[in-house]
């Protein structure tokens, strides 16, 4: 009898223990959540940071820019990764809960327009890209290629890359309704690599040997052109904190922005700030 009770109680305690409590916790514990674009930077930086300071405990999660910012507003994470600037609605929401998100640019990302390697097209103008993605041009012959239907690939409307591309390239016009919405950068890259008539866009780090990145207005997407601002489709990547960063959060951000942290970002295919 007693044994049963003890077992039951210990089981309940075990179950209760697996539920995540509020984050607060120890001084050196931080939770990072948000954009899957920023995720590789956050992850590798967190690993190295913990190697240097074994007492620090950093949890890194993906989920998307919106998820990260929502978590920051709800107080369930300390740093929100975002591949876009915070929205007005989110700012208002944050203010309502007494949170003041502060942006830190941690690296630059370029969005490359990619096609199948067999495609004879090597460059497009910004207007042509816009016309293709919004639906005004649907055949490759209209932009100087071999005639054939253009298969347009886009990231899901939920992704930060989608929003950044929508702003940078489409000036907030709607992506054509028949565009294939893909759930990840890899999915876009691999589908373009397997579809001769396809065009898509991915972060600079996702250009593989199986796709061809196009020049835009005569500028090739590369680290140099993104950083110098010559390349049209480049964007900053953010980490948001609640107010001015302090303690371990500050130490971590300083590390990300240090020469070593920026080198790690470059290793992940992003463009360092220095």
């Amino acid at each position: 009898m007693k044994k049963t009770l003890v077992t039951a109680i210990s089981m309940i305690l075990m179950i209760a223990g697996t539920f995540p409590g509020p984050v607060a916790g120890g001084e050196k514990t931080i939770v990072i959540e948000g954009s899957t674009t920023v995720l590789p930077i956050a992850q590798i930086a967190a690993e190295e940071f913990m190697n240097n300071d074994p007492s620090a405990k950093i949890t890194v999660r993906g989920g998307g820019s919106g998820v990260g910012i929502t978590s920051l507003i709800e107080g369930t994470c300390d740093i929100a990764d975002a591949s876009r600037a915070i929205k007005d609605a989110e700012l208002a929401n944050a203010a309502g809960r007494g949170i003041s998100p502060k942006a830190h640019v941690v690296a630059m990302d370029g969005i490359a327009v990619i096609v199948h390697p067999s495609n004879p097209i090597g460059h497009l103008s910004k207007k042509q890209v816009k016309d293709i993605f919004t639906g005004n041009i649907s055949d490759w012959s209209k932009v100087g290629g071999q005639s054939g239907k253009i298969v347009v690939l886009s990231r899901d409307s939920a992704s930060g890359t989608f929003e950044a591309f929508g702003e940078l390239a489409l000036h907030n016009q709607k992506v054509r309704a028949d565009a294939l919405m893909q759930a990840s950068n890899q999915a876009v890259a691999s589908t373009v690599g397997k579809t001769p008539g396809a065009i898509g866009y991915v972060g600079l780090g996702y250009i593989t040997g199986s796709v061809k990145a196009l020049k835009i207005e005569g500028v090739i997407p590369s680290k140099e052109t993104v950083l110098s601002g010559k390349y049209a489709y480049s964007r900053p990547l953010f980490m948001y904190t609640n107010g001015k960063p302090q303690g371990t959060v500050k130490a971590f951000l300083d590390y990300v922005l240090s020469a070593e942290g920026q080198r790690l970002a470059e290793d992940q295919g992003f463009v360092g700030l220095k």
Binding site: G66, V67, N93, D156, S157, A158, S159, A183
Partner: peptide
């Protein structure tokens, strides 16, 4: 739902 829930602003 699967693709968009992650980024939808809560309560929007």
């Amino acid at each position: 739902i699967a693709a968009e829930m992650g980024e939808a602003v809560m309560g929007s």
